[in-house]
């Protein structure tokens, strides 16, 4: 039985640094992906799909806010400051989340890769030893379950419906697979995180992810690309230029009067 950490005060030193890094990764992934998904609102292929995608964006940004609050409890700045004042290198999101939305195939394949990752991540966090994080992970599992249903619905249908849908989905799988592998980029904190029982290791998460994704893609008639180099860097703050553009867009109004209320 591992020791549990009931509150922010109960973690210190390198375990605190590791925990903070872990939560930044969770929060930034959700904020940036939520931002990308939110752009579909009003522009999706059909009204019903539009409404569902918009809810996903809201859930993701909402979860980001909740993670930022955990960070604030650990002594980091407040959620709005974190979202609206940091520069790109301070972000810890994976490159998968920050790519532009692309077409509907690109967005749904990305969402599927992310949802499988997130589902297993949350399962591990729910059993984790940092109580505030475990509680939050349990609270959002219902939302995540719906996201998973949504993603499976799209991938299983678009994968082998028409020549065009198959071609678009395969192209997105080919483009995004390496970025998806980047979700599991090893970090210097990995061992501490696992040893303290905050969450399982990245390689452990990856194995579960790979088995599930491969079986689904196979079922959907899509091919898993071979020999893909994982796109790393995001977890160390080394990002594609798209992130700075995204942040400029996101922080545009805020920067007009940074000290004011909006």
């Amino acid at each position: 039985m591992k020791k549990t950490f009931a509150s922010p005060d109960s973690v210190s030193g390198e375990s605190r640094d590791a925990l903070i890094d872990l939560i930044y990764r969770l929060a930034d992934d959700d904020l940036i992906l939520g931002h990308r998904n939110s752009v579909w609102t009003g522009l999706a292929p059909i009204l019903e799909a539009d409404i569902a995608m918009s809810s996903l964006a809201q859930d993701e940004i909402g979860q980001a806010v909740a993670y930022y609050r955990l960070l604030h409890d650990l002594g980091e700045p407040d959620p709005d400051t974190l979202a609206f004042t940091r520069s790109a290198q301070d972000y810890r999101c994976a490159s998968l989340t920050l790519l532009d939305r692309g077409d509907w195939a690109f967005s749904t394949v990305r969402q599927y890769f992310y949802d499988v990752y997130k589902t297993h991540r949350l399962a591990s966090l729910s059993d984790g030893t940092y109580a505030p994080l475990a509680q939050l992970a349990r609270k959002v599992r219902g939302e995540q379950k719906y996201h998973m249903m949504h993603s499976r619905m799209w991938v299983s249908r678009l994968g082998d419906a028409t020549d065009e849908s198959r071609e678009r989905m395969q192209r997105s799988v080919d483009t995004l697979y390496g970025h998806a592998l980047g979700l599991f980029e090893p970090t210097p904190f990995e061992q501490i995180i696992a040893d303290h029982g905050f969450c399982t290791t990245e390689s452990g998460l990856f194995e579960t992810w790979r088995d599930e994704v491969h079986s689904m893609l196979d079922h959907a008639g899509l091919t898993i690309p071979g020999d893909v180099t994982p796109k790393h860097g995001g977890r160390r703050g080394q990002h594609l230029p798209e992130l700075q553009l995204l942040l400029d867009e996101m922080q545009q109004v805020y920067r007009l009067e940074p000290t004011a209320q909006w």
Partner: peptide, 20 residues
């Protein structure tokens, strides 16, 4: 009512249009 291609997708879409 909603427009959907099949019943499972209908559930996924109805959930957000009528249960959000």
């Amino acid at each position: 009512a909603i427009h959907a291609p099949d019943s499972e997708s209908a559930i996924v879409m109805a959930k957000e249009q009528y249960g959000r």
